[in-house]
Amino acid sequence: MRATSGYSVGRSGGRAMDSRSRYITTPEDAEQFAASQMRDMGFPDARVTGRGADGGVDVVARRAVAQVKWMHSKVGRPDLQRLYGARGAEHSKDMLFFAELLSPSPYTQDAVEYADEHGIGLFAYTSDGNLFPLNQHAKDFAAGIDQVRAARAARAAFMVTVRTVVWSSLLVVSICGLFISVLTVPSAAPVWLGFLALSVLGLVLARVYQPGAK
């Protein structure tokens, strides 16, 4: 399945925006899924508000609000108006709407037009955890996923570099300590034992910080 141009979802064998080993079988699953997707989109504090406590909002973040529909008929303009109203005076907050996938689209044309006019990102999700951005605002939000993942990859690569440098340094220290302990006469026991202990400690820490170690 794939998100096609416009606002419909086709079945031409393409890839969804996101696919993970998760299944959505309850409204709570859908809300948790939406919150997880929002965190990937760059809203790290996205969280579920809890049933009945949202006043039209199911997921909140410092910079965004979202509504989630599960096993619902087509989403109409009034549903989006409730989300817009629930945002209140905090006009800087982004708005996202998640609806279960219906063919060709879970949103009515009136809803799509309202979303485009008011900057609401429209998403459709499937029970097996695929997510489709259905309008340009949603695609803009979805682009944040690539940015977040790129940042995570860069951070992981940096940590590998740090571990490599630390590991190499500790290995050098341990080898030097071992070499000096061998050259030090046994009569100078404190010095000999000190360098021997340093070499052992260096080897242990080098093992801990070995690149690829978890």
Rank of each mutant, 00 (worst) to 15 (best):
V185E: 11
G6P: 06
G119D: 01
Y84N: 07
I145Y: 07
A86P: 00
E90T: 05
Q210F: 15
D29R: 04
T25L: 15
T4Q: 06
V191D: 06
A66P: 00
M71R: 15
F97K: 00
R77C: 14
H118K: 07
V75I: 13
V173C: 11
M41L: 06
F158T: 13
F97P: 00
V9H: 03
L131M: 09
L205Q: 10
G13P: 01
G10A: 15
D128V: 13
M95A: 04
V57E: 01
Y84R: 11
Q109M: 11
S103C: 07
R15W: 14
R77Q: 13
V68L: 04
R15N: 15
I175V: 15
G129D: 08
I180S: 01
L178P: 00
W167D: 12
L183A: 07
V9N: 00
A213Y: 07
A3S: 10
V9A: 05
R62H: 10
Y114I: 04
W192Y: 09
D29F: 02
R62T: 14
S5F: 13
A66E: 02
L101E: 08
L178W: 13
K214G: 12
E117W: 07
A35V: 06
V173E: 09
F43T: 03
R2A: 14
D18V: 13
R15K: 14
V75N: 00
A138N: 02
Y114R: 03
P106W: 02
L205H: 05
I180W: 08
S169W: 09
A3Y: 01
H91P: 01
V191I: 12
T184S: 10
L102S: 06
M17Y: 09
H118R: 09
A153S: 13
T26V: 04
M95S: 00
D58Q: 03
I180F: 11
V148A: 09
E90S: 11
D110G: 13
D18P: 00
R63V: 03
T26L: 08
S36V: 11
D94Q: 10
E90H: 10
Y114V: 01
S127F: 04
P104N: 02
V172D: 10
A153Y: 08
T126D: 09
R22H: 12
L171I: 10
R47W: 08
A143Q: 12
M1T: 14
K139Y: 07
V208N: 06
I180C: 01
G76M: 06
P78Q: 07
S73D: 15
E28S: 11
M159L: 15
R87W: 03
V191L: 12
A3F: 11
G14V: 04
A86N: 06
M17T: 10
G194N: 01
R155A: 15
R149H: 14
